[in-house]
Computed example of a mutant assay.
Amino acid sequence: MISIRILLYLSTLATLIFGIHTSKLNKTAVTVSQNSSLVLKGSSNVNNFSCHFNMQELKNPIPINYYLASNTIAFEKATLVLHSDAFDCGGKMINKDFQKTLKADAHPQIFLSLKEIKRTNNPDIVNAQVAIEIADITRNYQLPLHLSGTHEWHVTGDLKINLNDFDLETPKKLFGMISVHDIIEIDFNLHLKV
């Protein structure tokens, strides 16, 4: 059953169970359930903050193209497109600072692309390779994802990124007395339907 949980949102589960190799391009689509959440968490030298993504923005099915191997799924197309203005950080001023930090005027979208999934010895965890594009700069990351479910996949995980890696400057207030830290955590809690 380890291989079944690797699939996340793919419909061809039986192929992986038997470890069959294929170079065929497979296509499907997934829908993100509205009880999902995606949150950016950060902190300053004064307090913590959270920016919640409006999941209504992901109501349309997301196309997925992928290749299968015995321990790996390679994705050619599997991207969440997040509009920066769909994040709510809890207030008008902090939302404005968030938009400015992300250079949302010039780059209004954030792209989270799943590149590859590899199984681990734990049946509930896979290692995922993702590419994140912010302000026209792309960085690659590896992170463990926790998986559960059969008809609807529940995917959870978190990833810490450094805003400096995207040439982004965090806001400073009150003549620099309040400053936001460069490390932001992306918290995934996704319910996916094929």
Rank of each mutant, 00 (worst) to 15 (best):
L82A: 05
L82E: 00
L82Q: 01
L82V: 04
H83M: 10
S84E: 06
S84R: 06
S84M: 05
S84V: 13
S84Q: 11
S84W: 00
S84C: 11
S84P: 01
D85N: 12
D85H: 07
A86F: 01
A86I: 01
A86S: 12
A86N: 07
F87N: 00
F87T: 00
F87A: 00
D88R: 05
G90R: 02
G90C: 08
G90L: 12
G91L: 06
K92F: 13
K92N: 12
K92P: 01
K92A: 14
M93T: 13
M93E: 14
I94K: 03
I94T: 05
I94V: 09
I94P: 02
I94D: 04
I94S: 04
I94A: 03
N95R: 02
N95D: 09
N95W: 00
K96V: 07
K96D: 02
D97I: 04
D97G: 07
D97E: 08
D97H: 07
F98Q: 01
F98L: 04
F98A: 05
K100T: 09
T101M: 11
T101C: 09
T101A: 09
L102N: 05
L102R: 02
L102H: 03
K103V: 03
K103R: 14
K103F: 06
A104E: 01
A104Y: 00
D105H: 12
D105C: 11
A106Q: 10
A106I: 03
H107D: 08
Q109W: 10
Q109D: 13
I110V: 13
I110G: 04
F111H: 09
F111L: 15
L112H: 08
L112V: 15
S113Y: 12
S113M: 15
S113A: 15
S113R: 09
S113V: 14
S113P: 00
L114D: 08
L114F: 12
L114S: 10
L114T: 11
E116V: 10
E116Y: 08
E116K: 15
I117Y: 09
I117W: 09
I117R: 08
K118Q: 12
K118N: 15
K118L: 15
K118P: 09
K118E: 07
K118D: 07
K118V: 15
R119V: 14
R119K: 14
T120Y: 02
T120N: 04
T120V: 06
T120W: 05
N121L: 14
N121A: 14
N121C: 10
N122P: 10
N122Y: 03
P123N: 07
D124K: 13
D124Y: 12
D124C: 10
I125F: 11
I125N: 10
V126T: 12
V126S: 14
V126G: 15
V126E: 10
N127M: 10
N127I: 13
A128T: 03
A128H: 05
A128I: 01
Q129V: 15
Q129T: 15
V130M: 13
V130A: 12
V130S: 06
A131R: 07
A131E: 08
A131M: 11
I132M: 06
I132R: 02
I132E: 00
I132G: 02
I132Q: 02
E133P: 05
I134A: 03
A135P: 00
D136C: 08
D136T: 05
D136H: 13
I137E: 09
I137D: 14
